[in-house]
Design a protein around this nucleic acid. Structure first.
Lengths: 231, 231
DNA sequence: GTTGCTGTTGACCGTCTGGTCAATACGGGG
DNA sequence: CCCCGTATTGACCAGACGGTCAACAGCAAC
């Protein structure tokens, strides 16, 4: 069984993979159905056989992308940590998920240009993101109980904040580099930006009268708190 | 003179205006040269007469868009204010510039999908953004002298931060709304987000040991500081 | 008024594109 | 071994698309 040729599941998957690349690189309109077929080394008719149109294929690509992206954010695993460490890890996971899935960014941009008409119909989306917001709520609550976070921090705002900072840096890398005359693509620059995001969120969530010297030495942040893991 | 018909400057401008709409709505590949000509109620050949190709037209649209966008950020006017007020105003101007120019967001996304190949050649870009970074540097320096900001804040990071937070909220509005199940389009929601950005930046730039009660009542922020305007 | 430059147009073209149809290979079940 | 549903394909189409050409209209100068 699974004789390499005549393997519908594999064929379907190959189409989705190549379609993702094509749609991400060239956008919905720029993408060519023939181009995708060529990448797959398949007849174009296969795309119409499995997905009924170019748009149907695009929707399938989008849903698959979201599924993959969210699975890499690993937010549930983060709940066990100390609140501050958890926040840091969530930022890192989110940034890395975007970094390792550049197609996801292109596809989300494309979907927003279409005012979200494809995704709006999919209730899978909310199912996917609900646990993430709940995780943040959990982290913030525990942080407040531990006496390191303020009480009145809104979880959705926090996600919006960290997502914006992770996403835009990568999404608009090229125009930002030209405008600001800086390098953003190197690992060094990315690590610096990640630290910046973490510091920004920490200073925002922190109790106003918290110790003053700690926030000025981001290098020591992980070491300082890693012992405090609970549960 | 300026006989309405046979007015090259006006014709050129009309083409750019309509091309901006078309490119923003449909992307470079999705945009149709015939469509733009139709919007202008002009013969398609006019587009090739003034700009030599579809790509040439796109570049012209991009440069015009950046010029307009930057002119609305009004960063120089902001230098006169108290540092904290100046920061607030810069955030407001930036957000409103994006809000009032939705095409700009689409076009920048498009340009980033092309890895910035059109804009990279234009040195006008850096000329445009240099004064903005300098303004931020100026604000931060004065804020430090006034004893309200830390010393070691990087101006480019601050711009990157506020731009990310303004841009992504608007750029990815639709997918974010579906994912988080919240409304982002209403004036109320936008104002709340603007306040959030300002608070975030203030808490990041603030001296660690600054008075604790002030940061918890954002409503009073402008009133508190408006008397301190200098020179 | 005619010459000449510039702005403007209708008609046209080669190519590409999303999509369809009928036909064909494959492989498991009887 | 043959049958039948499923997977896969080659050939084709009608329309759209970016781009070109030659011709034309308006205006200023002489």
């Amino acid at each position: 069984m699974a004789s390499r040729s005549r393997d519908p599941a594999r064929t379907r998957d190959k189409i989705l993979t190549q379609a993702t690349r094509e749609f991400a690189n060239k956008g919905f309109d720029g993408a060519r159905v023939d181009g995708i077929a060529l990448r797959c080394k398949l007849s174009k008719n296969m795309l119409y056989y499995y997905f009924k149109s170019k748009e149907g294929l695009f929707v399938a690509v989008l849903e698959r992308m979201y599924e993959k992206l969210r699975s890499q954010q690993k937010d549930l695993a983060v709940r066990a940590s100390d609140p501050v460490v958890a926040l840091e890890q969530l930022v890192h996971h989110t940034f890395n998920a975007f970094l390792e899935n550049p197609e996801a960014i292109r596809l989300m941009n494309e979907e927003n240009r279409h005012k979200g008409r494809h995704i709006r119909q999919s209730r899978r989306m909310r199912e996917l993101y609900n646990p993430l917001v709940e995780t943040i709520r959990f982290i913030l609550k525990r942080g407040h109980e531990d006496g390191v976070f303020r009480a009145d921090v809104d979880p959705a705002s926090i996600y919006l904040t960290l997502a914006s900072l992770c996403y835009h840096y990568l999404s608009n890398q090229y125009t930002l580099e030209v405008a600001l005359g800086v390098d953003l693509g190197s690992k060094k620059a990315r690590d610096a930006w990640l630290s910046h995001i973490v510091e920004l969120l920490k200073s925002f969530c922190a109790l106003p009268n918290e110790a003053s010297d700690a926030e000025k030495t981001p290098e020591r942040k992980v070491v300082r708190r890693v012992a405090r893991v609970r549960a």
